[in-house]
Computed example of a mutant assay.
Amino acid sequence: MHGYDVFRHYERKRWTIEDLPFDEIDPDQVRPEYVTMVKSSVMGEANSIAAQHGFLNEFDDYDFSAFVAVWGYEELQHHFAFRTWLDAVGVSMPSGPVEAMRAPYGPGTTPCATLATNIISELTVNHVYRSVAAWVQEPVLRGLMLRASRDEAGHAREFVHYARQRLQRHPDELSSVLETLYVYTSEQRIKHPVGVFKSGLAEVENHETIDTAFDMFLAGIATEGELDRLQDNIRRAFSALTGLDVSTNSRVRRRLAEALA
Rank of each mutant, 00 (worst) to 15 (best):
V160W: 04
Y184T: 04
L144P: 00
D215M: 06
Q165A: 05
R229K: 07
V183I: 08
A81P: 00
D5G: 11
F159L: 01
E75D: 15
E179I: 01
L86P: 09
R83L: 04
R235I: 13
A261P: 11
R147A: 14
V204H: 14
R164A: 06
V177I: 07
F67Y: 15
R31Q: 15
R142V: 01
V91H: 15
V38L: 07
E18G: 03
V128A: 05
R251W: 05
F238C: 11
G72R: 03
L260N: 14
E173Y: 07
F59S: 05
V89C: 05
W71D: 02
M93K: 12
S48G: 13
T185Y: 07
P111R: 03
P97D: 15
V136Y: 03
Q168V: 08
V125A: 02
A134N: 11
S92Q: 12
M43K: 13
G108P: 12
R147K: 06
P139L: 06
C112E: 14
E226P: 10
P111L: 04
N206L: 12
G154E: 11
L218W: 08
D19G: 00
D245V: 01
R254Y: 08
P94L: 10
H127A: 14
A261K: 08
H161W: 03
P111V: 02
S65G: 14
A259I: 09
E45I: 12
E33A: 14
S40Q: 08
F67I: 07
R8W: 09
T212G: 05
E152H: 01
V91M: 14
W15P: 00
Q231S: 02
I120K: 01
Q165I: 05
Q52F: 03
A81F: 00
G72Y: 00
Y184C: 07
R169V: 15
G195A: 07
A46E: 12
A202V: 07
L144V: 01
A213T: 02
E179V: 00
A50D: 03
R229A: 13
V132W: 14
F82H: 09
L167A: 13
R12H: 08
H53P: 00
I17K: 09
G154M: 05
V204T: 15
Y105V: 13
F59G: 08
P27L: 08
G143M: 12
S250Q: 13
L144G: 01
A46S: 15
F59C: 06
L146P: 04
A103S: 13
R253Y: 04
P32H: 08
A153E: 09
G108W: 12
R255T: 09
E226W: 11
D232N: 14
A113I: 07
Y10P: 01
K13P: 00
D211T: 11
L218Y: 15
N118A: 03
R255I: 03
W85C: 04
V89W: 06
M145E: 03
L181I: 10
H53R: 10
A113F: 10
L230N: 13
S41Y: 13
H207N: 15
A113V: 08
Q137H: 09
L144M: 04
P171Q: 10
A116S: 11
A257M: 02
A51M: 08
